[in-house]
């Protein structure tokens, strides 16, 4: 009898230790995540030099919107790495056309430093990853394909090591932002996550927006009705 009791005690003890260990790891992870996310407002990569940007372009409308934003950014945001889903030919054409026009509107009124940047640094690159979620794809298969996209996103983000990720809601942006967070979690580099919710969203956030609302450093919405519902967001009127 006592032998049986002893065994139960040992098993219980072991379970407790495992449980405590796991809890400890989870708590450490959450604390670390909070620290990384909180550090966003103090992170000012622009003080050190040009900002390396990872731009997540989606399909169609998303790409048009994000290029409107990119148009307004100065050459201090260089180089620019555009990530597109591997099935998306249209976005590639749009990006190439846009970058060509950006190059042409050069030098005037720019510092010598900026001109130097245009000439000497690689301006932009195109990166492809598998599409994480097709429109109207079911939830469960979205999870699988998002995990698959994550396998590509992590090495890509670690290799490019951007200062910031800019995205506006295509499914592809979730694994890329997660990879950016991971870079911060392991202490290699704080990657700022800048999320701009699409202008199409007036009353509710997109799925990507809901996921990234708490994880992003700067979360922009374009309608005051969304700002009311999501107070942490930044509302500057329509910006595309």
């Amino acid at each position: 009898m006592s032998d049986w009791r002893k065994r139960v005690a040992v098993v219980a003890m072991a379970l407790f230790v495992i449980f405590a260990g796991l809890s400890f790891i989870v708590i450490c992870f959450i604390v670390r995540l909070c620290i990384v996310i909180r550090s966003g407002s103090k992170c000012k990569p622009g003080e050190k030099g040009p900002i390396c940007v990872l731009v997540v372009a989606g399909s169609g409308g998303h790409t048009t919107e994000i290029l409107r934003l990119m148009e307004s950014l100065s050459l201090s945001y260089s180089p620019r790495h555009y990530v597109i889903a591997d099935t998306d030919k249209m976005s590639e054409d749009k990006i190439r056309t846009f970058e060509r026009s950006k190059k042409n509107t050069g030098s005037e009124g720019q510092s010598v430093h900026a001109v130097y940047l245009t000439i000497c640094l690689p301006q932009f690159t195109l990166q492809r990853i598998p599409r994480s979620r097709e429109v109207r794809q079911s939830w469960s298969s979205s999870v699988v394909s998002t995990l698959n996209a994550l396998l590509y996103a992590v090495p890509l983000v670690f290799r490019l090591s951007p200062d910031m990720v800019l995205c506006n809601g295509p499914g592809t942006c979730v694994p890329l932002c997660a990879a950016g967070l991971l870079l911060g979690l392991v202490g290699l580099k704080k990657v700022l996550i800048v999320y701009v919710e699409s202008i199409c969203r007036v009353e509710s956030l997109s799925l990507s927006g809901k996921i990234l609302y708490r994880l992003s450093d700067y979360f922009f919405v374009q309608w005051s009705s969304l700002k009311d519902k999501y107070p942490k967001s930044i509302y500057l009127g329509r910006i595309v």
Partner: peptide, 13 residues
């Protein structure tokens, strides 16, 4: 829309 407002905000931030 005014993408410039976005650029100014980000430059400052």
């Amino acid at each position: 829309g005014q993408p410039k407002h976005f650029a100014d905000f980000l430059d400052r931030a």
